[in-house]
Simulated assay, not measured.
Amino acid sequence: MTEREPFRVQIKVRHYELDTLGHLNHAVYHSYAEVARLELFEQAGGLKAFAKDRVASVLLESHISFRRELRAGDVVEVTCDTKFGTGKTFKMDSNIYKLDGTLSAEITCTIGLMDLDKRKLVADPHGRFVSAGLDLKLMSTSE
C-alpha cells in the first residue's frame, strides 16, 4: 500500500511579497498556507456546505518554522493535510517546497469550526465535516 500525498497547490513568489533583504516576507508564508487551506476546503466541498449551515472555519493558532529562503520568481508547492483529534479543534499542516523539493517552511495551524450565530466553536468538527459531505480523503491523508 502506498502512502497518499497531501493536497497541494502551486504559487509563484511575486516581487511585491519580498522584504528589504529580497526574501519572501515572513507574513506571506502564512498567506500561502491560507491559500492552500481555502483551496482545499473549496475542492472538498466545505465552503458552500458550511455557509449553508452558518458555520465557518476559524484560525486559532499558527506556528511556522522557516527552513530555506524564497525569492522572487520561485515557484512553490504548498501542501495541506488535515489532522482530526478529539475536542473542538483540529490541525491543518502545510509544507512549502521549492520545485526542486527543498523544504522552505513548515506551518501548523489549529483550526475550529465556529457557529456564526452563537460565535462559539462547535463540538466534533470531524463529525461536522462528515455530515456536510466533505471529501475527507482529499482533506486528510489519514482518512
Rank of each mutant, 00 (worst) to 15 (best):
Met1Phe: 05
Met1Gln: 09
Thr2Glu: 07
Thr2His: 08
Glu5Cys: 11
Glu5Val: 14
Glu5Met: 11
Lys12Gln: 15
Lys12Leu: 01
Arg14Tyr: 07
Arg14Lys: 15
Tyr16Asn: 13
Tyr16Val: 04
Leu18Gln: 11
Asn25Ala: 14
Ala27Ser: 13
Arg37Asp: 02
Leu38Asn: 12
Glu39Asn: 05
Phe41Cys: 14
Gly46Ile: 12
Lys48Phe: 15
Ala49Phe: 12
Ala51Ser: 15
Arg54Cys: 09
Arg54Leu: 11
Val58Leu: 08
Leu60Thr: 11
Ile64Ala: 14
Arg67Ala: 04
Arg67Tyr: 08
Arg68Asp: 04
Arg68Ala: 07
Leu70Ala: 04
Arg71Met: 15
Gly73His: 07
Gly73Lys: 06
Val75Tyr: 06
Val76Trp: 14
Glu77Cys: 03
Lys83Trp: 02
Lys83Met: 08
Thr86Arg: 06
Thr86Glu: 14
Gly87Asn: 07
Lys88Phe: 02
Lys91Pro: 02
Met92Trp: 01
Met92His: 07
Asp93Ser: 05
Asn95Met: 08
Tyr97Leu: 06
Asp100Thr: 02
Thr102Ile: 01
Leu103Gly: 07
Ser104Asp: 11
Glu106Cys: 01
Cys109Pro: 00
Thr110Glu: 13
Gly112Pro: 12
Asp117Met: 08
Lys120Phe: 00
His126Tyr: 10
Gly127Leu: 00
Leu134Asn: 01
Met139Ser: 05
Ser140Thr: 04
Ser142Pro: 00
